[in-house]
Nucleic acid binder design. Structure first.
Length: 544
RNA sequence: GCGCCUGUGGCCCAAUGGACAGGGCACCAGCCUCCGGAGCUGGGUGUGACAGUUCGAUUCUGUCCAGGCGCACCA
């Protein structure tokens, strides 16, 4: 049956009524997967939660809840899958499911393939996820690489569970940085034609500037167009790097076009109408303190030019106007101080705070031979996405970038990522997939939908099926945390569960019925592994 | 000074407020006549410190200690 958790939660809510007089809000019910199989397949601590407010002993409460719960469940479908409900420990209510529940889950996966794994949690909610958005002034760095891996995988996951997701790259294609870029190219061109000059320290130092200068010279680009020319040149490089990393954007949004369209003025007018704009000391300010910011922010400087915030307010206003009602932004940690003012602007424009999720992607420190690699963008000394790709490949690099929570620092050891050994988690997972593929290739028996799966009685078989069942819940965690990280953990656990089964039990044996059932089991495992890896942008090889 | 992230066995990391804190690496000892040994099994007096909230804290709060990053009318 689909989603026994939902049925149990609603039955539980019903059973809690006697503890909450009309109108009172009970606690949110959480159904956990207990860490220890000794405590059943599902568990809730709701009785312990209630005992806080009622001062009654938790086990007494639990007993009453279970009594009401049995009535509420009656002879419902869910009740047919429950073997036992026990009160254990301090007052946990533990659910022990019938084995047929798992056999049906397994059958469902084999019969419907990855379709059985997709659930519609998103209800087609139009969602825009903006990430990378690096200035087109140089190749993408490892920092962008992590953002690309996380953003793309999160988008995959959200799309898989029913959100209408689009990927967007916001292009800072004008302003100071582009001017400096153009000037950097101009100076290098002068150098190339034999002039000796001093190259400012805050200009772009990388060798790629020479490459651009040479092309610009050949094409006789006008001096005033050098900035745009260089930005476009670099943007082409960035696009290629992203494609190589398996990331494709739906939209490339230009700040220049945004300004030219007059939408910045419109956004500021909108804010003004709503009463959140004022002038002081020759500058125009946004009253962001009205929404929890530490201080008000300048949007138009006293020299009449915009701060970075002004186009950004307009940009986000446009995102909503384009029909999106969930905006996810992935930013580098250098932008974290910027979150509050953007949230403030979104609220000031009348959108709910929750409709904007800003996720800070912490930096990855690259290690080589056990030592951190120092980086400096300005000097052009940094590890690029391309270098990581060339060195360790797409699969390992994407997986590695997501092996820690996105909000946590990540140490990325190039030497480990390169290793094709058990030290390398991505190979551990892929190996499980390859192993299964190999058995399925050599097995001559064809599995059909009606196999009798109840011959799967071994401990390792049942725990593997349970692991498969947890896939959906894992995706749900990725949703609530807006972080694909948990999926990398899950896939490692699933692979482990499979390897343990494989080691103790033969799939292709003399017993035909058992062989068929086990083939179903490993085929389902293969489907879940392949689906999970695909969501992370990692390949699921049939041979390694 | 302010903000964000992080302190878990020798090293790297898990644990949506739960029930004995789990893995990996390294180290030691085992497992291939058999579907892929890139695997599996066994071996461990560990949550930075001190308070607090709670029936219960690695998780929440406060103070302190240590490390990383960021703090513009830059983008």
């Amino acid at each position: 049956m689909k989603n026994i958790q939902e049925s149990l939660i609603s039955a539980l809510q019903h059973s809690l009524k006697e503890f909450y007089p009309e109108g009172a809000q009970g606690p949110g019910i959480i159904l956990d997967f207990p860490t220890d199989p000794r405590f059943g397949e599902l568990s809730t601590n709701v009785a312990l939660q209630i005992s806080k407010s009622t001062k009654l002993p938790p086990r007494d409460i639990a007993a009453k809840i279970v009594e009401a719960l049995n009535k509420a469940l009656g002879d419902s479908e869910a009740a047919g899958y429950i073997r036992e409900i026990k009160i254990e420990g301090a007052g946990f209510i533990n659910f022990y499911l019938q084995e047929k529940f798992f056999y049906e889950e397994l059958r469902d996966i084999v019969a419907r393939k990855e379709k059985a794994l997709a659930v519609n949690l998103g209800h087609n909610r139009p969602t825009l996820i903006e990430f990378v958005s690096a200035n087109p002034t140089g190749s993408l760095s490892v920092a962008h690489a992590r953002q690309a891996a996380v953003g793309d995988s999160l988008a995959n996951i959200l799309a898989f569970i029913g959100f209408k997701v689009k990927r967007e790259y916001y292009l800072n294609d004008e302003g100071n940085q582009i001017n400096i870029l153009g000037d950097s190219v101009r100076l290098r061109m002068q150098e190339l034609s034999g002039e000796s000059l001093e190259f400012p320290e805050n200009y772009y130092q990388g060798d790629y500037i020479y490459d651009i200068a040479k092309v610009a010279q050949k094409r006789k680009i006008r001096k005033e167009d050098l900035g745009d020319f260089a930005a476009n040149y670099i943007l082409d490089i960035i696009k290629k790097e992203l494609v190589a990393f398996g990331v494709k954007f739906d939209y490339w949004s230009s700040q220049k076009k945004l300004r030219q369209s007059g939408k910045i003025e419109k956004a500021l007018e909108d804010l003004k109408k709503r009463g959140f704009i004022y002038e002081q000391e020759g500058a125009v300010w946004f009253k962001s303190t009205g929404f929890g910011d530490d201080k008000d922010r300048v949007v138009i400087k006293s020299d009449k030019s915009y701060t970075y915030l002004a186009p950004d307010i307009a940009y986000h206003r446009e995102k909503y106007r384009r029909g999106f009602d969930w905006l996810i932004n992935l930013w580098g940690p250098d932008h974290h101080g910027y979150i509050k003012r953007l949230e403030a602007s979104v609220e000031a424009l009348g959108h709910p705070k929750e409709s904007l999720a800003v996720i800070i992607v912490q930096l990855a420190t690259i290690f080589r031979e056990g030592k951190p690699v120092q980086m400096s963008t300005r000097r052009g000394e940094y590890i690029t996405l391309q270098e990581v790709l060339d060195e360790v490949g797409r699969d390992a690099s994407r997986f590695f970038f997501m092996m820690r929570r996105t909000s946590s620092h990540l140490d990325f050891d190039l030497d480990v990522a390169k290793k094709q050994t058990s030290e390398n988690p991505v190979y551990y997972v892929q190996y499980a997939h390859a192993r299964i593929s190999s058995i399925l290739r050599s097995g001559k028996i064809r599995v059909n939908k009606g196999e009798d799966l109840s011959v799967l009685k071994e401990k390792e078989e049942l725990s593997l099926i349970k692991k498969l069942w947890h896939f959906e819940a894992t995706l749900n965690i990725c949703l609530t945390t807006t972080d694909p990280y948990m999926l990398t953990v899950y896939l490692q656990e699933l692979a482990e569960s499979f390897h343990k089964f494989y080691d103790l039990h033969r799939v292709l044996g003399d017993n035909d019925a058992l062989t068929r059932a086990r083939l179903s089991l490993i085929e389902a495992t293969r489907i879940v592994l392949a689906t999970g890896l695909k969501l992370l942008g990692v390949s699921a090889p049939e041979k390694m």
